[in-house]
Design a protein around this nucleic acid. Structure first.
Lengths: 200, 200
DNA sequence: ACCGTTATAGAGACGGATCTCGCTTTGAGA
DNA sequence: TCTCAAAGCGAGATCCGTCTCTATAACGGT
């Protein structure tokens, strides 16, 4: 009995990503998003109660997608192989979806919105954060001697650093960059050292 | 004969950094900056023609300071030693000046302002970019087999990735993180390989 | 055909931030 | 003490984006 939707939430979130490919989050306005799909601004507010909620939803959708595939890559039988796969996956994701990469990988949760997140979305964000931490922790356990911090650095921070540079200079994530990331990940996970303790 | 300044440009830029310690660039308003030094908003505009110009100036001042010390660290007789020093310097700079670190290291030039930069400042920014590239290039030449891209990744991207994580999670740049960065830098610059090409 | 339900539509109220502008203050030299 | 150049001051004009609100459209069922 209801009138069928003309603009789905997914479609709107896609438009957000499209806009973010060209401009930073802070510059994104509802009007820009509406323009992309040829809708008036009111139609956006029909799905998302506020700008913050819209932006946060897009960020979460990207993050959740990114994480699920990342976890899949890591599940390879050989952990080191999995780590390289995960790093490669991050670069590949960034190549395929530059908008989402520039958005999710470069903006931390707190940078996305001005004020606090709507409760429900904040919950999802916390869950995503925990899920990622769990994924890393589980991985780290498979490589004795590799701390959680080290695993996180190798699996997330290093590949993201490469993406970050490419995005901000507009250059490509070419074979050389990929090589650098792989070298780094390999060497970070190479040692099976005895939880070294080191002076300050 | 003129009335002596009550608020210097430096003082205002310091206030900007102070504000940025707590809030993202996009949230910074002239009123906040003015509040920090107890000035009315008009006095800010007496020194800086626009918000963009103010923010860009602060970014440049931080960047130029960061770069000059970085270059100094790199100048050590042994290049590898210099690289470790540079990485350590980045972390140390971030510890000492969290506001500037969060601002300069986490926001690329294009993320700082909405529109285009004022001409004069754009020139300074370009120069800074070139200077940094030159510094890296000069360094790379001292280590045969290390490409400019590799040097940049080791000297800039990797330490910045560490800073980024610490800033965004609010955690400290502790000894473990420092160790991770040093390990990574060392291994990236270790090989004197013949521009190896290796299968995927 | 009509009804109920859910969507779209878009004009404009509202709020907040930037920037302007004329007036005031200050201090050194004449 | 008077003058003048440079700074400070701050009320509010202006702009821009978010969000509201009322009207209208589309569809399935009865």
């Amino acid at each position: 009995m209801p009138r069928p939707p003309k603009y789905s939430s997914e479609q709107i979130l896609d438009a957000v990503i499209h806009v973010l490919r060209r401009s930073p989050v802070s510059a994104l306005s509802i009007a820009m998003v509406a323009d992309v799909i040829g809708a008036p601004s009111g139609s956006i507010y029909h799905r998302f109660p506020s700008r913050d909620s819209l932006v946060a939803s897009a960020w979460l959708r990207s993050g959740e997608g990114f994480h699920s595939h990342l976890a899949a890559s890591l599940a390879a039988p050989d952990p080191r192989h999995g780590a390289l796969g995960a790093a490669a996956y991050t670069l590949d994701w960034a190549r395929r979806r530059p908008g989402e990469a520039a958005f999710f990988l470069l903006n931390s949760r707190s940078e996305v919105t001005g004020s606090e997140w709507p409760t429900e979305l904040a919950r999802r964000a916390t869950r995503l954060g925990n899920d990622i931490t769990d994924t890393v922790r589980t991985f780290a356990r498979r490589l004795p001697g590799v701390s959680v911090a080290r695993a996180r650095f190798a699996l997330l921070d290093v590949p993201q650093a490469a993406v970050r540079r490419a995005v901000s200079t507009g250059s490509a994530l070419d074979a050389e960059v990929q090589q650098l990331v792989e070298d780094t990940v390999t060497s970070l996970l190479a040692q099976a050292e005895p939880v070294t303790r080191m002076a300050s």
